[in-house]
């Protein structure tokens, strides 16, 4: 994680957040995607609007993308340069039927 990047004074956009949604009771929160927001409250509001707008009564977690520590796929990972220090994300959009091939 490059701190220079996170605090770059000329950074124009809002930071990136990852969104996790509990679709219904009894299920885990699942990563559904990302969005941009200026702060945590806004991220929650946006997440509600974007990822649950058809689906009331769920629980949402948001976290700044740069705060996620991710494992590398294997030890030979430096090959993602020049941006290997970025957090790469795995949007597993929820609600994908099991019988869709290869998804």
């Amino acid at each position: 994680m490059s701190t220079e990047q996170a605090h770059r004074p000329d950074q124009r956009g809002w930071p990136l957040y990852e969104v996790f949604v509990r679709g219904k009771r009894g299920l885990n929160h699942v990563h559904v995607g990302s969005l941009h927001a200026a702060d945590d409250a806004m991220a929650l509001t946006h997440a509600r609007d974007l990822y649950t707008r058809r689906n009331e009564g769920v629980s949402i977690w948001v976290v700044r993308s740069e705060h996620i520590a991710a494992s590398t796929r294997d030890e030979k990972d430096p090959f993602f340069a020049p941006s290997a220090d970025k957090v790469y994300r795995h949007p597993t959009f929820y609600d994908i039927p099991d019988d869709v091939p290869h998804i």
């Binding site: 927001a37 946006h46 609007d49 707008r53």
Partner: peptide, 11 residues
């Protein structure tokens, strides 16, 4: 002013 606000205002 931002795409996320498009969604919010429409809601």
């Amino acid at each position: 002013p931002e795409l996320e606000e498009e969604v919010a205002l429409a809601n």
